[in-house]
Amino acid sequence: MLSRIAESLYWLGRYVERAEDTARILDVHFHLLLEDRWVDETATGRALLQVMGRPAAPQDGSDALSVTQALAFDTAYAGSIVCSLSAAWDNARGAREAVSTEMWECVNATHEALPRLVEDAGGQMPHAFFRWVKERCAILAGLSESTMSRDDGWKFLVLGRSLERVDMTARLLSARYGDSLGQAGWVTTLRCCSAYESYLRTYQRAVDGSSASEFLVLDRLFPRSLYFSLRAAEACLSEIDPRSGRAGVDDAARRYLGQARAQLEFSSAGDLLADLPGRLAHLQDRCSDAGASISERYFRPAAIVEWSA
């Protein structure tokens, strides 16, 4: 498959996941503040901006509306939902012949409708917007599931999605809602990942920090756990590489991910919670190394930028 197309699909996967997860997190954050008036709005807002990679400037507000504005609607911030959706559209357009018509129509219709939805959200009632974003992303995921061949294109799409999911879940855990809010904070964290109900069914007891983080990091069945997403990314990489050897792993990206996964996998829940921030930071570094290695190996950015006579 063309390197440029593979790259576009990889980023399509990443941007859609980013938009969806951001919507999910913001939706919970925004309503947490309404439901629980004891929450320190400013501190939580700042923490959220911080882990999402957009530290608030001193003059920025960190009340719920400002945070929403910054992470959802800010067209100048590349990580915002609107920018992620635009970037997803750009990538889909550049890989138009590699995605199915149904997927393209979904991405395109989302892109077409985006300005109207942003306007309707108007800052006051962002829930409808978040819901719409989550729905559009879910439709796209469903369409890709049901209409895309499981060829390399699919694998790069899922690879991008999985890596982004690892990154977003790690960021969310780094926000450490649990530290300041105790049990309510862990519930929030789980709900940001749509994991609350799964958690309850699995543990059948009230939420505590240890089991919540164990669930989000290590659960083997929940699709947004770090473990699950890392395994998905690893699987894509090994299928993409037709020459993967009989002994050992010679693909750097797979090594990064595999090592990071093993470190989490073979930790006890207690150890995990004791040094969660350090482990998450390490994991994010490895994911970023893996991304660079994938790009270098498969996307072969053409060195040639201009021709001179």
């Binding site: 930028v305 201009e306 001179s308 006579a309």
Partner: peptide, 11 residues
Amino acid sequence: LRGVYSGPAGS
């Protein structure tokens, strides 16, 4: 002799 090369002009 004529040609093109990658990179900014200067030769």
